[in-house]
Amino acid sequence: MDFSSFNPMVLAAALMVAATPILLAAIGELVVERSGVLNLGVEGMMITGAVVGFTAAVTTGNPYLGMLAAMAGGAALSLIFGVLTQLLKANQVASGLALTLFGLGFSALLGQGYAGVVPPRTAKLDLGLLSDIPVLGPILFRHDPMVYVSVAIVVAVWFWLTYTRSGRILRAVGENHDAAHALGYRVLRVRILAIMFGGACAGMGGAYLSLIRVPQWTEGMTAGIGWIALALVVFASWRPVRAMLGAYLFGGILVLQLNLQAAGIRIPAEYLAMSPYLITILVLVIMSSGRARKSLAAPGSLGKPFHAAG
């Protein structure tokens, strides 16, 4: 076996890119769930973002306009979920799954005629001197801009949830919507805005795939990433920075297992292919059986419909 070919710097750089679409979708869903809403439609919103972003970028020739369009598209689709679950009090689990089904079909219809089209390129960010720093430069400073945007969103969400008044309102709504309502907070408005934020983030994650990572439009191209994002929110026990660590852990194992295969390590490939899922479960088990158990609780009102009496 030849381990000399494993360059940790290269692995670290690759895992950040591999984790970015998952992270974008996860951080959005995290905000949604912190407001007390469970939206299982992440996959549907991601794929819609992927196609809307792609068509917009191809039409305008500008990948950043594509990104913005993808956010709008994801948010618009999530609004269907918002209306159903918040205004019409429909069941959240079923509505989310229906959203995924609808999104997969809708995106395929929108994308007809875009298969085989090449989108405009996104330039890597030129960070000049920073990218020449030894070790850190290749790991941290030679990516496309969206990698940094995803990290910035995580930090911003963490800061917002922890230190701002509106962030505290969102958490209050998620923990106990009746109490929040009694305090005069507008539960439904907060939740619908959170749902749209989640949709926008998922849309961005999808467009990251179709515009930067792959870049190509094909039906079903998100291939289940939305579900991983959902799992990561739980994995992170609804904490933004942990979501980032979780995404990088998952991306890291994925990249590592592919590298192990590529290096011809004598572990059967099917076990390596399972490893990202099994190790994620294992880490969560270790975390949840430890001392920090209490901090793992889900938002109190998660998944429950809110109806203001009177």
């Binding site: 269907i80 229906a98 089904l101 609808f102």
Partner: peptide
């Protein structure tokens, strides 16, 4: 698929 999605909605 879209039709089924609408039915569910």
């Amino acid at each position: 698929q879209v039709f089924q999605g609408m039915l569910l909605f």
